[in-house]
Design a protein around this nucleic acid. Sequence first.
DNA 1: GCAAAAGTGTTCCAGATACACCCATGT
DNA 2: ACATGGGTGTATCTGGAACACTTTTGC
Lengths: 225, 225
Amino acid sequence: MPAKKYCYEYPHPAVTTDMVVFTIRDQELKLLLIKRKLQPFKGSWALPGGFVAIAEDIHQCAERELEEETGVRGVYLEQLCTYGHPERDPRERVITIAYYALIPSEKIKIRAATDATAVDWFVMDELPELAFDHANIVEQAKQRLVAKLDYSTIAFQFLPREFTLTEVQDIYEIILEEKMDKRNFRKWALALESIEETGEERREGRHRPAKLYRLIDPSRVDIIK
Amino acid sequence: MPAKKYCYEYPHPAVTTDMVVFTIRDQELKLLLIKRKLQPFKGSWALPGGFVAIAEDIHQCAERELEEETGVRGVYLEQLCTYGHPERDPRERVITIAYYALIPSEKIKIRAATDATAVDWFVMDELPELAFDHANIVEQAKQRLVAKLDYSTIAFQFLPREFTLTEVQDIYEIILEEKMDKRNFRKWALALESIEETGEERREGRHRPAKLYRLIDPSRVDIIK
DNA sequence: GCAAAAGTGTTCCAGATACACCCATGT
DNA sequence: ACATGGGTGTATCTGGAACACTTTTGC
């Protein structure tokens, strides 16, 4: 057993960040999970995450965890909530700050992970049993995502730099699980004034080519209405 | 110096909860602050808060801190955000989970506090310089409160068990800092179906008595529209 | 020429806004 | 009787919802 050389006058909890990483692929909302190779919950699927280093900002910690698991940087990342039930981890008191991230499908290259254990994308409504209170965290992240589609431009964070309006609508339909009217959707999307035509078109399949759009400010997420 | 007898293999941050406690009094939005009697920031005003006990749920911790400072229980309390910049506390690494609470003015009896230092209510836009990153936390709590007035019934949590419609409107006008139309406001408030007439009236001053209302479910905060 | 997705306008309805006077009471 | 805040209804505007056909391309 290693030496316990960090000592305090009062007991301190451990602090972790856990990441709820969403993407859209194959017309489905998917979630990144890792297979735990250590106790507790060894062999279970869990959210990627890890301990906050002692001199590391918590947001940086989340960014680091995300990059370690997925290799991506500079994507949308937002603090979700902090979970601190005393019994949520059987080892010691662990308080976790949950974040959620939105990854454009183009950026997925599911790196073989730093550890040898499995990392995989799961369809949101076919999740396996999750370790700790992670099912609860995922639930709340999904709720937040659904809510934010309605009052922000967050959905565009799932898209590559250039995209068609149909692709935007697909994002909404997949996450909200409802069909939308094409004309109304386009009117609404253009009225946001968050996107502009690139001037280019994308030709694919035997049908009319689609105009390409881009975000005017790619990293900005506006709160609307 | 006391013994440092709680030891870990890796360094652990300290974890606190800080409370942003709002109330409405004298037709103003006010915030509860305490005067620090210890270093760092000795003598500065700060948010009430304290360390999370090792076997204590974080929400319980917030409730406990709130009761210690104000003597109130069972009021609206919601997690705001977690702040963990490595340098936010000069002593050691401290991560704080901020909560905000809404106190009905009737319940204020600003207990003389467990410690001998000052505790006081400040008008929101006449705040003193605050310790740590507390000014930032307060700012975000205010933003959350303003946002929630629009899409939830949170405002009623400032009111006593029975209240008049004018009192409800006052809450909105004070926090949003804008006048509203009386007829439209009442139409809207009644359409929520969150409140009902008590059948009683309140007579005060030389004018027509006001009907009293109550929340149908006093502890429920609905998300609207 | 036909299959497939892209693109485009108008009508309708509901909910928000603007607006002014009468009512019940205490002094 | 008058001053004070309590209480009420209608017309208008606006943003969302419903709805169907033409266009461009590849094969």
